[in-house]
C-alpha cells in the first residue's frame, strides 16, 4: 500500500493538470463569491441593504466552496488518465492487487480533495471579504467561515473519491467528466428546483445542505440560487448521506475494476 500511495503522489506531482485543476478551483471560488456580491448590486445600489441580511452574506461565504466540482474532476482525471495513456498496464503490473491500487488512489484523491477545497475556499473567502469591504464593513461571525470550510473540505474529499470511482467505471476522460457535470449540474439541479422532496436526497442536495448555513435564519433566507433550503436534510444527515454516496461509488468501482481486463 505504501508504494502505491507514493506512486500516486508522484503522478500528481509530475502532471501539470493537477496544478491547473487547483488553480481553476481557486479561481472559481473567488469568482463565485465576488459575482454574487456584484450581482446583488446590479439592479439598484442596494447592496448594503442586502449584505446586512445575514442570509445573503452567508450565501456569499457558502459559495466560496463552489470549487468542489474541481475536486470531482481531479478524481476523474486520476483514474481516466491511466486508461487514456495506457499507464494502467504499468500500474497493475507493479501492484496486481487492484483493490490496493483503488484504495491508494482514493486515499490520495481524498487528501487532494481536502487540499483543493481548503485552498480554493480559503482564497474565495479572502476575496469575498476584501471585495465586500468596498461597500460596507460587514462582520460575518468566524463560526460561519469555520462551518463552511469544514463542510467544504468534507465535500472535496468525498467528491474526489467519487471522481476516482466514476473514472474507473467510465474510463473515457471526456465522457466521465461530461456525464458527471451534466448529472450534478443539470439533472440534480432540476431535481432540487422542481422536486425538492427528492432533490434533498441527491448528491448535490447533500452538498448544498452540508454547506448551507442560511437555513432557519429568518423568513425568506432559505432560498439559495432559486432552490429552497428550508426543507433540506440537516447538516449531519447530509454529511452521512454524502459519505454513503462516496462509499457506494468506491465499492462498486473497486469490485468492477477487479473483474475487468486491462488493455
Amino acid at each position: 500500500m505504501k508504494t502505491s500511495l507514493k506512486a500516486e503522489v508522484r503522478k500528481l506531482r509530475y502532471q501539470r493538470s493537477s496544478y491547473g485543476i487547483l488553480a481553476g478551483a481557486c479561481a472559481i471560488a473567488a469568482i463565485s463569491a465576488i459575482s454574487i456580491i456584484a450581482t446583488a448590486q446590479l439592479p439598484r445600489r442596494e447592496l448594503l441593504m442586502h449584505l446586512t441580511d445575514q442570509a445573503i452574506m452567508q450565501t456569499v461565504i457558502a459559495s466560496t466552496a463552489s470549487g468542489y466540482i474541481f475536486a470531482l474532476v481531479l478524481g476523474i482525471v486520476m483514474s481516466t488518465t491511466e486508461f487514456r495513456h495506457s499507464t494502467a498496464v504499468a500500474t497493475y503490473l507493479a501492484q496486481p492487487h487492484r483493490r490496493t491500487v483503488m484504495l491508494a488512489k482514493m486515499i490520495i484523491a481524498a487528501v487532494m480533495g481536502v487540499i483543493v477545497q481548503f485552498l480554493s475556499t480559503g482564497m474565495g473567502m479572502i476575496a469575498a471579504t476584501l471585495y465586500v469591504q468596498r461597500y460596507a464593513h460587514y462582520n460575518t461571525p468566524l463560526d460561519t467561515y469555520m462551518r463552511v470550510m469544514a463542510g467544504s473540505v468534507l465535500v472535496g474529499a468525498v467528491l474526489a473519491v467519487m471522481g476516482v470511482a466514476i473514472g474507473s467505471l467510465i474510463r473515457s476522460q471526456v465522457v466521465a467528466i461530461m456525464v458527471s457535470l451534466l448529472w450534478l449540474q443539470l439533472v440534480e439541479g432540476l431535481l432540487i428546483v422542481f422536486a425538492d422532496w427528492l432533490g434533498k436526497w441527491s448528491i448535490r442536495g447533500a452538498i448544498t445542505s452540508v454547506l448551507d448555513i442560511a437555513v432557519k435564519t429568518g423568513p425568506g433566507s432559505g432560498r439559495l440560487g432559486g432552490s429552497s433550503t428550508l426543507d433540506q436534510l440537516g447538516p449531519w444527515q447530509s454529511m452521512l448521506l454524502l459519505l454513503a454516496y462516496g462509499a457506494v461509488f468506491a465499492v462498486v468501482a473497486t469490485v468492477t475494476s477487479m473483474r475487468r481486463d486491462v488493455d
Binding site: 503522478k11 509530475y14 502532471q15 488518465t81 495513456h85 495506457s86 499507464t87 498496464v89 504499468a90 503490473l93
Partner: peptide, 11 residues
C-alpha cells in the same frame, strides 16, 4: 508490453 503507455506530458 506494446500496450504499456507513458504519460506524454511527463518526462
Amino acid at each position: 508490453l506494446e500496450t504499456r503507455g507513458f504519460h506524454p506530458g511527463v518526462t
